[in-house]
Computed example of a mutant assay.
Amino acid sequence: MIQSSKLKYIYPIGLFIAFFLDGAINQVFSADLFQFPYSMISNLIIIWMVFTIFFTGQDQIHFLLWALVLGLMFDWYYTGIFGVNLFIYPLVVMAVQGIKPFVRTTFISVLTVTLVALVLSNSLFYAVFTFLRLTNVSVVFFIGYSLLPTIILNLSMVVVLYYPLKQLFRRTRGASSRTLE
């Protein structure tokens, strides 16, 4: 019970840290991340959600509810267009939860599922903005100059964060965490 209550506090705290770090990284390093024609976007929220789905019990945290709340906050605070991330984040969470039972929790599988989640999230964001006519960038330009650099940036962060976050969740879960590799 103690581990479960720790997770209920660590998950939202980590989620809000990722929320504010996404904005801070994108703002502070904007000269480097957004050099024409390239653009890289930090997606620590997606990384945090994927890690927690893999490293915690599915029944302990209401991932969809938190994804809705953070999607609404992200839309309100960063994009100003309500509903985009409000639906994208829960879709990503459902996709990751659907994939998780079929893969073991290893570095390669977490990296691969994070890749899928990042591609899904950024592609849906692009599709919605194209549909709303808020962007006029071609698919090829989007993939080459935005999606690929974004994936490289975020997978680099996954490589750096994997072991420390795995240890955080192992310590939080206590003795029952032996199932984590």
Rank of each mutant, 00 (worst) to 15 (best):
V119F: 11
L15W: 02
R171D: 07
L155I: 13
R133W: 08
L153A: 07
K100C: 02
V139E: 06
F16A: 02
Y145G: 03
M40E: 09
F129W: 02
S4H: 08
M1R: 02
Q60W: 13
L91K: 00
I41E: 10
T179A: 12
I53P: 02
W48M: 02
D75N: 07
G14Y: 12
V110Q: 02
L15A: 14
L147K: 04
D75M: 01
S30A: 13
V110D: 07
N26F: 08
T52N: 10
A117H: 12
I2M: 10
V160I: 15
S42V: 02
G98L: 09
F29C: 05
M49N: 07
T56N: 09
L70H: 05
F129D: 08
N122S: 14
N136T: 13
L153Y: 09
S156C: 13
I25S: 11
F20I: 00
T112C: 06
V69K: 00
L70Q: 03
T172G: 12
I13T: 02
K6N: 12
F19H: 03
I143V: 10
V92T: 08
T105Q: 09
I108T: 09
F36G: 08
K166A: 15
F74I: 14
Y9G: 12
I151N: 07
L124V: 10
I25D: 14
I13N: 03
F51I: 12
I53K: 01
F131A: 11
I53C: 06
G71L: 03
A175M: 06
T114L: 15
L68I: 14
V96I: 11
L91M: 13
N43A: 13
V113T: 08
T150C: 08
T105M: 11
S39L: 05
L165W: 14
S42H: 09
F74A: 13
A127I: 13
L168A: 03
F63L: 01
V119I: 15
L91P: 00
L132H: 10
S146L: 04
K6G: 07
F19S: 05
S5D: 12
I46S: 09
K6C: 11
P37C: 07
S121P: 01
P149V: 03
L161Y: 12
G57W: 05
L155V: 08
K6Y: 14
E181W: 12
F51C: 05
S39A: 11
F29I: 03
G83S: 08
L153W: 05
S176G: 04
S156T: 14
S121F: 12
T114W: 15
L15T: 13
G23T: 03
I152S: 07
L120G: 09
N154D: 07
H62V: 02
L21G: 08
F107T: 01
S5I: 10
T172S: 15
F34K: 01
F20E: 05
P37K: 00
P149C: 15
V139Y: 03
Y162L: 00
V69F: 03
L86Y: 04
S138G: 12
V128D: 08
D32A: 09
V140M: 08
F102Q: 00
F36C: 06
I88T: 02
G174W: 01
F141H: 09
R171V: 13
